[in-house]
Design a protein around this nucleic acid. Structure first.
Lengths: 340, 340
DNA sequence: ATTAATTATGGTATCGGTTTCATGAAAATG
DNA sequence: CATTTTCATGAAACCGATACCATAATTAAT
């Protein structure tokens, strides 16, 4: 790899001049500039970010930590985070932890060693239960937490209100005559899933319905987990509607119902959360609470970069609106209907 | 962020000794070592990879360029590439180009600026049509191309034989009585899709069937593209089976057929390629030619890292076997059946 | 014509590590 | 006891860039 010194020698100038051609071209003689640029082209010289970063103490990169590539919600998130990063001249370094806490710590350490300028974390775990860790981390570099509010910690956050979203969905079911509405919730240690569950519980109570424990089952954050959970649910109850706390899980529910000959939505209606693209690629298309993942990604990157580039920018909790999208999995096919 | 100098001062030693504690601990006095390690812990010191990389001329990282996060084939690939990278102490820097050639070049340049030690590229474009570019690139760092052979270029490659895979699938259809087998192929500029198409064409001819142009339609590499292409296909032909050159596209085909009241596989059977996880999450589950994406990712990373760490390792073309998995989209539900 | 301002360029320190070489002290050898 | 090893450590060079300061050559101003 050619260095700035190689270019300088070939052009018969000092490396200072070469550097100036790139960073302060107005200070360099036209003729020299042309010559140096020619040599750069010829050697296909690109300055080393390592050296630049060392000098400038920033790398124009930030880390993105997600639990799982295969969850399309994160895939879509990454797509947009990357666009935002690129737009600001940054590069996103993406790590998937596979929901393994050890890997998570390891990756965070690695990202810090690489001197990323900031960190976006899709964190399913409790923010408060990891208070010390996050406080320590946030001292080192700006942090944005996705999908849950910062709860007073020194980080920014971007999320939608899962409580409200599932609440609206539950209300929709009730208004359409459902009385036995089941929910496939996530394990209780995951606050993101918990607030969605609580939205369900609160909506039921508001409409004067009791929570039937037989209609509540826990599941892993996967389609397979939800598939299996649906089996458990139907062994002990006869719901007319099933809410899954993510679309990926709703896919698992749908699979179970179809495999076992249930008519959806005729016998059992289903709904999810996130609005991942496959939700409208399956039949019936799945009713869901859509998160504006493109805007969420954009806001997260924007807020992070602002904080990186100006230390006076303060942490913010950025709440975006989710919205209920009614599709065929909860009624007979007509046009999509957007509520809220 | 504490530096090696901070640790050295606090421990009352030189930075050389601190460095030695990390890299050649056997050369350091036990007592000193303990003291230095204590300070490191206390300051939560992590050496800067920037500085290390600058000295060592390697960053223990490699770039991965994919066209699209949302294609689950790549998502699954990334999952496994990352595991392999981690296993070898490397970090994968992932970039998605969104099938935009400008972004692709830009990212490759950026990765080189970041001094990645190697590059894995999921390249849908023609290798030979980009010969000059790839030759130039391969001079700078080891490169592994996915999904197509290297065609004599100075890069390694990892792929399965799409020609053979789709050939087997086509033969299966013919043996099961299908005579009007349609194919949703990709645009002709993409060689990965082309060889799959050719496998279809060759299999038909081998079984004495002619290629009916009305049964061949082109589509973008997306579910939406295939959805639309299926509409075009069915406007001018009445196939009893449809092959899509990827599972993602097969999902689009399935959607179109279901939306338009076709019985799958009763009226029209469908099949795809890749075996992404959602293929068995939809109903009917989709028959496909499975690529061993986990092993492909592992081999790619392994070969790349070998070449990075030992300049005498030569480029290799690594062909892995794909296999036909028969599911309900081509026959009535029973157990999965694996052929070839 | 002399001084001041402008223009173009180079020398050198710096960022945070690793490595080579040098050095002094302690231990082992003859 | 003198000499050679071994052990423990530090000083300095280097990796590739940027930025500050210095300087020489013009050009402009008085």
């Amino acid at each position: 790899m050619p260095t700035i010194f190689d270019v300088a020698r070939r052009a018969g100038v000092s490396k200072t001049t070469v550097s100036r051609v790139l960073n302060h071209p107005e200070l360099v003689n036209e003729e020299t500039k042309r010559r140096v640029r020619g040599i750069m082209e010829e050697l296909s010289y690109t300055p080393s970010i390592l050296a630049q970063g060392m000098r400038a103490q920033r790398t124009k990169s930030f880390g993105v930590v997600i639990p799982d590539f295969k969850n399309l919600y994160y895939a879509e998130f990454l797509e947009h985070v990357e666009i935002a990063a690129r737009h600001h001249g940054y590069i996103a370094i993406i790590c998937s932890t596979d929901i393994d806490p050890d890997r998570e710590r390891e990756y965070i350490t690695k990202l810090i060693m690489r001197q990323v300028d900031g960190l976006i974390m899709c964190w399913y775990k409790s923010v408060t239960a990891n208070r010390d860790f996050l406080v320590k981390l946030a001292k080192k570099l700006p942090v944005v937490i996705m999908d849950q509010p910062s709860q007073g910690l020194p980080v920014s956050s971007v999320y939608t209100d899962g409580f409200k979203g599932i609440g609206r969905l539950t209300k929709y079911f009730i208004e359409n005559g459902h009385r036995k509405i089941a929910i496939i919730r996530s394990l209780k240690k995951y606050p993101v899933g918990n607030s969605r569950y609580e939205g369900y519980a609160a909506a039921l109570q508001k409409q004067g319905l009791d929570i039937d424990e037989a209609l509540v089952v826990e599941s892993e954050w996967t389609a397979e987990g939800a598939f299996e959970a649906t089996g458990r649910l139907l062994a002990g109850a006869e719901p007319t509607a099933i809410i899954a706390v993510t679309d990926l899980m709703a896919l698992g529910v749908l699979k179970y119902l179809k495999d076992n000959g249930y008519d959806v939505p005729g016998e059992i209606a289903i709904a999810g959360f996130d609005d991942i693209s496959v939700s409208s690629l399956v039949s019936p298309r799945i009713t869901t609470v859509a998160q504006p993942v493109d805007r969420m990604a954009w806001e997260a990157a924007q807020q992070l970069i602002r904080r990186i580039e100006n230390r006076h920018v303060r942490n913010r909790d950025i709440e975006l609106e989710n919205r209920l999208i009614i599709r065929e999995s909860t009624k007979q096919p007509v046009e999509d209907e957007v509520t809220g």
